[in-house]
Amino acid sequence: SEEKKKAKERLERLGASSELARELLDRANGNAEKAERLLRKLL
């Protein structure tokens, strides 16, 4: 979806690899905010 694509791009801008961004979104069930929080914990 367009929303998921935007979320993935945002995670990548924050420093996630394409693969990591995809994994985070999967774990967050597509929830962009939750995926971002997970990423911030990792960085």
Rank of each mutant, 00 (worst) to 15 (best):
N31H: 06
L14H: 03
K5P: 07
S17V: 02
S17K: 03
L38R: 04
L25C: 03
A7L: 10
L38T: 05
E9K: 09
E33K: 13
L38G: 01
L11T: 00
R37L: 14
K34L: 15
R40C: 09
E33D: 12
D26L: 14
E2Q: 10
A28F: 15
E3Q: 11
K8L: 15
A7F: 09
R22A: 15
L43M: 10
A32G: 08
R27H: 07
D26I: 13
S18W: 06
E19P: 04
L42G: 04
L42P: 01
R22M: 15
L14S: 02
L43K: 06
R13N: 08
E3C: 08
K4S: 14
E9T: 07
R37W: 14
L39A: 00
K8N: 08
L38N: 04
R22S: 14
E2T: 10
L14T: 01
G15E: 01
E33Y: 10
E19S: 08
G30Y: 08
K5T: 10
K41N: 12
R37Q: 14
D26C: 09
E9A: 10
G15A: 04
L43Q: 09
L14K: 03
A32L: 15
R10M: 08
R27M: 13
E36A: 07
A21T: 03
L43H: 05
L43S: 05
A7N: 08
A28E: 04
A32K: 04
K34C: 10
A7E: 05
A28P: 00
G30R: 02
L25T: 02
E9G: 06
L39Y: 09
K6G: 12
E23Q: 12
N29G: 14
L20I: 05
K41I: 13
S1G: 12
D26Q: 13
L42M: 11
E36K: 04
S18I: 06
S1L: 14
R37F: 11
A35H: 00
L14F: 04
E36W: 06
L20S: 02
N29V: 04
A21C: 04
L39G: 00
K41W: 14
K5H: 09
G30V: 02
E36Y: 07
K41T: 10
R13K: 12
K5Q: 13
R10T: 06
K34V: 15
G30F: 06
G15V: 02
E9C: 01
E9W: 05
L42C: 07
L20M: 09
L24Y: 03
K5C: 15
K41Q: 14
R27S: 06
L24I: 06
L20T: 04
